[in-house]
């Protein structure tokens, strides 16, 4: 049984059929539990639109998104917020840490709106797991690029969501730091974490199980990653 089922996802802008712009045009795929899936495509291929739809933040014009047997877009706005909190961990492009909160507080953010009592301990142990135990009280501006990435990943995994959605997580990093971050994703995957990563960088794909390629809103490839990647666009 797959964890994620994207069925005929369409997203267009504009009401008039003749001038309508399709950002996503009938994309269907499945993601199994524990799978590491990379989504690639050139600019304007619909990667970001797909990610926001998978992220329960952008209802498709048509098609269905089922995660863990839940028809995501049949939920109300507020229920979808709860769903995101419970099911999804986001690692954004440029990390998007809150600059006035410390590393620990940034990681605690998803827990603040839960009734958990061990918020602080859980956030601290997650940061420790990612090697940041000594920098809990540093502001993002006091951390290196790699450390900031790890804080962002810690925030995404702190409440153990079944799926991590990552948007160009190494886009803004130098190659050494990028490697470091990819190794964290690999480690999480090895521990059984389901990951969907949007990227335009072929280097990011090497650890993925499967690669979905998009072009002009259409899925042009969906295949297992074996050695050399063949770009379909």
């Amino acid at each position: 049984m797959s964890l994620v089922l994207a069925d005929g996802l369409v997203k267009y802008f504009g009401a008039d059929e003749t001038t309508r712009v399709h950002a996503l045009d009938g994309v269907s795929f499945k993601v199994n539990r524990g799978e590491y899936v990379a989504v690639m495509g050139p600019s304007g291929s619909g990667k970001s639109t797909l990610l926001t739809i998978l992220g329960a933040m952008n209802p498709p014009s048509s098609g269905k998104l089922v995660i863990d047997d839940i028809d995501v877009y049949s939920l109300s706005q507020e229920k979808r917020a709860d769903f995101r909190r419970e099911y999804l961990g986001f690692v954004f492009q440029q990390l998007q840490l809150i600059p006035y909160l410390t590393a620990l507080e940034n990681v605690m953010l998803p827990l603040v709106v839960t009734s958990r009592k061990d918020k602080k301990e859980l956030a601290a142990s997650t940061l420790e797991r990612l090697g940041l135990g000594s920098k809990l009280n540093r502001l993002p501006s006091e951390l290196s690029g790699g450390e900031q990435s790890r804080v962002a990943i810690a925030r995404a995994i702190v409440n153990s969501p079944p799926i991590i959605l990552a948007d160009e997580p190494i886009g803004s990093l130098d190659s050494k730091t990028g490697e470091e971050v990819l190794s964290v994703f690999k480690q999480l995957h090895d521990e059984g974490q389901t990951i969907i990563m949007v990227t335009h960088n072929p280097d990011s794909v090497k650890d993925a199980d499967r690669l979905i390629q998009l072009k002009d809103g259409k899925m042009v490839a969906n295949e297992k990653v074996k050695g050399q990647i063949v770009l379909a666009f």
């Binding site: 507020e78 917020a81 709860d82 769903f83 995101r84 909190r85 998007q96 953010l109 998803p110 709106v113």
Partner: peptide
């Protein structure tokens, strides 16, 4: 706007 987007993405309700 950006910050609120992050809060909403990580599961903060509108009411929060």
């Amino acid at each position: 706007k950006r910050e609120i987007g992050i809060f909403r993405a990580i599961g903060y309700r509108q009411s929060t």
